[in-house]
């Protein structure tokens, strides 16, 4: 029994050889491959106002960090180069300097206070879910999402639509591999959409990077978050809290559409419900 477990776990030796071959080929191909690929070095562009604020905050902090790094690592590498024994440098036996110790305690405090202001402002905005235009409840299941439009009475499940063969490597992977679902969430552009999260079984988290939303879904309780999309388009995210074996296979897809298209979609969904009854 145990033997079988191990065998299935490692998926047989076929996979292993295939994998080893891949590593070799991969290493050789990597360098030209990198030049061709478009790499994502930073956040993906935010589609919400608050998202832009968060990214600006991040950039600000990164610049502060770069400055501090230049000073600290500058001093460190200067000492490494200039104060080495092989360059004939004699050690100076000082071991304290009250003034400089006070300076390097107090200056960081001021820098931190300076960072705290924009951070507080962004946080207060991020958490202000009041006065929404509509509310959608997202329920995490093992392993899919359920959505209820509380105002419209629309309910559906949203499950990964990537075929198993793509995951197993039997067919070529599609463009939106692992980030495609049968029933996406549809929301109107420019409206404040409040997301209530809860879960059926274990913790999940509703995470869409470009909408700057991440909220844990907790069984038995609701939590809320919100976004207001600025542009239409399709935005993809994933469950961000370990929830069992298919944690990596319960994506979130949000279609942001125009007001009119949204109305048409709502009408379609309602007539579908009516037809079913």
């Amino acid at each position: 029994m145990i033997k079988n477990d191990i065998k299935s776990t490692f998926g047989g030796s076929m996979r292993l050889t295939a994998f080893l071959r891949l590593i070799c080929v991969g290493t050789v191909m990597l360098v030209p491959g990198l030049a061709a690929a478009e790499l994502q070095w930073n956040f993906k562009p935010a589609n919400t106002e608050i998202g832009v604020a968060v990214h600006d905050l991040h950039s600000l902090v990164m610049w502060i960090i770069v400055l501090i790094a230049i000073v600290v690592f500058g001093a460190m590498f200067y000492a490494i180069v200039k104060h080495r024994k092989s360059a004939g440098h004699q050690a100076h036996q000082f071991h304290e300097n009250t003034t400089i110790e006070i300076v390097w305690t107090v200056v960081p405090v001021f820098i931190l206070v300076g960072m705290a202001f924009p951070a507080t402002k962004a946080l207060l905005e991020l958490r202000d879910s009041s006065a929404p235009d509509m509310t959608i409840k997202a329920t995490g299941y093992q392993w899919k999402w359920g959505y209820d439009y509380l105002d419209e009475g629309i309910s559906f499940y949203s499950t990964l639509s990537t075929p198993r063969e793509q995951i197993e490597g039997d067919t070529e992977k599609g463009e939106n591999y692992l980030l495609e679902v049968d029933n996406p969430v549809v929301v109107p552009v420019g409206k404040k959409v409040r997301i209530l999260t809860t879960a059926n079984d274990v913790l999940h988290a509703w995470y869409v990077p470009e909408l700057t939303v991440k909220q844990d879904a907790i069984p038995g309780f609701i939590r809320d978050t919100w976004f207001r999309a600025e542009k239409t388009g399709t935005f993809r995210g994933q469950c961000a809290e370990l929830c069992g074996k298919e944690h990596g296979f319960m994506p979130i897809v949000v279609n942001v559409v125009s007001e009119d298209e949204y109305k048409i979609w709502v009408a379609e969904q309602k007539s579908r419900v009516a037809a079913r009854n």
């Binding site: 001093a75 000492a79 104060h83 024994k85 440098h89 050690a91 000082f94």
Partner: peptide
């Protein structure tokens, strides 16, 4: 703040030392 103090202290320890 205290973490920064530690890093600065280590760099200052190296400063004007005789490093190998």
């Amino acid at each position: 703040v205290p973490t920064g103090v530690k890093v600065f202290n280590w760099v200052a320890t190296m400063w004007r030392g005789s490093l190998t």
